[in-house]
Simulated scan of single mutants.
Amino acid sequence: MKVLQVIPTLNLAGAERMCENLSVELTRQGIEVVVVSLFSYHTPISNRLEHEGVKVIFLNKRPGLDLRMIVALTKVMKRERPDVLHTHIHVMQYAVPAAILAGVKKRVHTVHNVADKEATPGKQKFNYFFYHKCNVIPVALSEEIKQTITKRYNVNENDIPVIFNGIDLSKCIIKKSYNASSESFNILNIARLAEQKNHRMLLHVMKELKNQWPSVRLSIIGNGFLKNEIISEINQLNINDMVELLGVKDNVYQYLSQADMFILPSLYEGMPMTLIEAMGSALPIVTTNVGGIPTMIENEKEGLLVNPNGQELLDAILKLKDENSRRTMGQNARNKALKKFSAEQMAKAYINIYR
């Protein structure tokens, strides 16, 4: 079996890392995989894929609508002759017509976010057509995401498989000690600097913590359009001594191992890869009760779930001052990751759909 994965770029973000993890694990399970990046950005992910023996093709897409991609993808499919097309994020408007022209009959699309946020309204119209007329199978990351697909696209629930994201858990550096330093308590956030990730609320909570828990420090890994605004907010709140922007990091596991808590206060989500990485590293977690997150984290068990509300977030952080609570939740998170969120389990589930 041969699978063609198509994605806009291979930048260091959640859907891209899921594509990487899936492609590598499929290869390990004997499936031939070719990954197509519409844009010609060589990245740490593309380098890792090639190191693992996965073929990566770059198509040099122009910004905006670029109908040349239909022709380019058709040529790729006729040359590579895949059995399955698997798309991610907003590429279906190019990849599905190409699959039809090239005769690739099995077509799968992973919905990486709540359905009404995954694509623009215009692209959602294309998606509706592809799901209903072009035999594209939408895959949901959780039952919650499945419900949004049914609601937005009127697809029968029975036609929407649910497959959890997964990672190579052997890469995690498992936390052993939960005895935080008296000089600094380190909170880690890994997320794009975008409205969805709700950094502004997090920064205002840090301002409140400055008086209540002076030793708290926040490190943010990620980049995005809001970087300058976030830097300005940090300066205005006078929390420069508490918050550090680390930029994009190729390998986040060393940072996870050094953190005392992981935090993700998103306004909406699919099934965040960073949350799985934190769980696999046995970190206690504070996150919001949105999208597929409640499938991953049971409140008071693997972490604390809150609404996207500053006071609730503040209270949850303060609750995890207790070392025993951090240890119990962190170890529970690791155990749940082993049971539900491995790359091996994810790949096996996709293979069942591909067949």
Results as ranks from 00 to 15, higher is better:
residue 349 A to Q: 13
residue 2 K to F: 03
residue 244 E to W: 00
residue 292 G to I: 07
residue 327 R to G: 04
residue 351 I to T: 11
residue 182 S to N: 10
residue 82 P to V: 13
residue 235 N to G: 05
residue 86 H to K: 08
residue 347 A to P: 04
residue 62 R to E: 12
residue 352 N to G: 09
residue 40 S to D: 14
residue 284 P to T: 10
residue 352 N to E: 10
residue 224 G to T: 08
residue 197 K to P: 11
residue 139 V to N: 02
residue 311 Q to M: 07
residue 219 S to V: 05
residue 253 Y to S: 13
residue 178 Y to M: 06
residue 161 P to T: 13
residue 280 G to Q: 07
residue 140 A to V: 14
residue 191 A to Q: 07
residue 355 R to A: 10
residue 124 Q to K: 14
residue 136 V to Y: 02
residue 92 M to S: 15
residue 302 E to C: 08
residue 56 V to Y: 03
residue 49 L to N: 08
residue 202 L to V: 01
residue 202 L to D: 05
residue 344 E to H: 03
residue 134 C to H: 04
residue 310 G to F: 00
residue 99 A to M: 08
residue 252 V to R: 06
residue 225 F to I: 15
residue 146 K to F: 02
residue 276 I to G: 10
residue 5 Q to D: 10
residue 148 T to A: 04
residue 51 H to Y: 03
residue 227 K to G: 06
residue 329 M to F: 00
residue 177 S to F: 01
residue 119 A to H: 11
residue 324 N to E: 13
residue 82 P to A: 05
residue 139 V to K: 02
residue 317 I to K: 06
residue 270 G to K: 07
residue 344 E to L: 04
residue 48 R to Y: 01
residue 247 G to K: 07
residue 17 R to T: 15
residue 241 D to C: 07
residue 277 E to V: 02
residue 90 H to Q: 12
residue 265 P to L: 08
residue 299 N to P: 10
residue 243 V to P: 07
residue 294 P to V: 11
residue 271 M to D: 04
residue 110 T to E: 01
residue 63 P to T: 11
residue 299 N to W: 00
residue 54 V to Q: 01
residue 222 G to S: 09
residue 191 A to W: 02
residue 333 A to M: 08
residue 231 I to R: 03
residue 264 L to A: 13
residue 329 M to D: 09
residue 270 G to L: 05
residue 206 M to H: 03
residue 31 I to Y: 00
residue 346 M to G: 10
residue 40 S to T: 14
residue 248 V to G: 03
residue 161 P to R: 03
residue 189 N to D: 08
residue 286 V to R: 11
residue 209 L to K: 05
residue 12 L to W: 00
residue 145 I to C: 05
residue 60 N to A: 09
residue 78 K to L: 12
residue 13 A to N: 04
residue 195 E to G: 03
residue 136 V to H: 04
residue 111 V to S: 01
residue 89 I to Q: 12
residue 272 P to T: 11
residue 82 P to S: 05
residue 127 N to C: 08
residue 236 Q to N: 15
residue 314 L to R: 14
residue 217 R to A: 09
residue 111 V to M: 07
residue 306 V to A: 09
residue 220 I to E: 06
residue 39 F to R: 15
residue 320 L to P: 06
residue 342 S to E: 03
residue 107 R to T: 09
residue 118 E to C: 10
residue 341 F to I: 15
residue 104 V to G: 07
residue 164 F to A: 11
residue 186 N to P: 01
residue 219 S to N: 14
residue 309 N to D: 15
residue 145 I to W: 00
residue 297 I to P: 08
residue 353 I to M: 05
residue 155 V to C: 06
residue 144 E to N: 13
residue 68 R to L: 07
residue 175 K to S: 09
residue 353 I to D: 06
